[in-house]
């Protein structure tokens, strides 16, 4: 019997996955309050990429200045959040771990709101202040949550972590409400940010997300072996020679960095990071060599479709994307929890 020598995807499998992502992307650019024919969309994007002049009409304007940056941002945010969820679920051996269930996203939001309220700017770089605060607060939240969980329950059981995460989320939300109450003339910009979603995304947003994904996501993707070892068990990881403390710190920094950037651009988008790795684990198995890239691409696709649903379901009204993911995610959470209780 010939065996696959590698645990990763083959080139063909990658090609199919990427083709699926591109197709979803085109679909999401075409469909909306004004539907644009597929051929027009393709030609507009090709002309833009090739630097050619556009044909007259509104199609090019809609696609290039509004839909394309938005869909690209959604793709990157979905992929990033799913990658983070996947890494945390492996690191903590906990299939319910995710930025939203652990309270990291709420922590990041609190950081971002504080940055706006107290005018924390980095001169010359747009929204860098919000982003740095969001990242720092995401990291501190993770440390607080895991530290508390260690103190209360040394074995770090699944339920303890989730419970502490939920309580921390409430705590962070209350603090956020207090900040908003006393924010005075900043109220408008804070409200604007919390409602923000990915509606008005720009190419700058896309670029920032892409850079963050390359740095932090790249670090996660390269440590698939260590994540496999953690997913089997932390003691086991130590026994086979993994530098447990170093890898843990590295993954936590990468995850909070990536979640911080996503939150500062698009607000809290719950549950993508929980649901995607779970679906992908059923499709490609638990090995992180395949699971991490599959979650990255699959999460992008999933969030693009959620965003599409948010735009067209109540046309011409638009739902916040977080609402759609929360509805799907809450149901999925119950299903995953039930399956775990039954030991499936």
């Amino acid at each position: 019997m010939k065996r696959r020598s590698s645990e990763g995807f083959t080139g063909w499998e990658y090609a199919i996955l990427i083709a699926l992502v591109l197709l979803t992307l085109l679909l999401c650019v075409c469909v909306g309050s004004v539907s644009i024919p597929f051929s027009t969309t393709v030609s507009v994007i090709f002309r833009a990429v090739g630097g050619l002049s556009q044909e007259p009409g509104t199609a090019a304007a809609i696609i290039l200045s509004s839909r394309l940056p938005r869909v690209l941002s959604v793709l990157l945010v979905g992929g990033s959040l799913s990658l983070c969820g996947c890494a945390m679920q492996g690191l903590l051996q906990n299939p319910l771990a995710d930025g939203s269930t652990l309270g990291v996203s709420s922590g990041a939001s609190l950081g971002a709101v504080l940055a706006i309220a107290f005018n924390f700017y980095v001169p010359g770089v747009p929204f860098a202040g919000t982003m740095i605060m969001a990242m720092a607060f995401a990291f501190c939240s993770l440390l607080i949550i895991l530290g508390l969980a260690y103190k209360l329950d040394f074995s770090l059981s699944t339920n303890t972590i989730i419970l502490i995460g939920v309580i921390f989320s409430m705590f962070a939300s209350s603090l956020m409400s207090i900040v908003i109450t006393f924010s005075g003339e900043k109220l408008r910009s804070i409200t604007f940010w919390t409602m923000g979603s990915l509606h008005g995304s720009t190419y700058t947003n896309v670029l920032v997300l892409l850079v963050a994904l390359c740095i932090f996501g790249g670090a996660l993707l390269l440590h698939y072996r260590e994540l496999n070892a953690f997913a089997v068990g932390e003691d086991n990881a130590r026994n086979i020679g993994v530098n447990v403390r170093k890898i843990k710190l590295l993954v936590l920094i990468a995850v909070s960095g990536l979640i911080g950037v996503c939150v500062s651009v698009g607000g809290t988008i719950a549950f993508v990071g929980l649901v995607t790795p779970h679906i992908m684990r059923i499709l490609v198995g638990p090995n992180h060599r395949r699971l991490l890239p599959a979650s990255l691409l699959g999460g992008g696709m999933l969030l693009m479709l959620c965003d599409l649903a948010a735009r067209v379901l109540l046309n011409p009204m638009e739902l916040p994307i977080g609402v759609v993911t929360s509805i799907i995610g809450a149901v999925a959470f119950v299903i995953i929890y039930a399956r775990r209780q039954r030991g499936v």
């Binding site: 299939p95 070892a229 068990g233 086979i240 638990p286």
Partner: peptide, 21 residues
């Protein structure tokens, strides 16, 4: 070590391969 395994559905070979880390 002693202890029950309650994690994800890795295959036998994948777990043995981790020994080569």
């Amino acid at each position: 070590r002693q202890g029950a395994y309650g994690g994800y559905g890795f295959t036998v070979e994948e777990v043995v391969r981790l020994g080569r880390y």
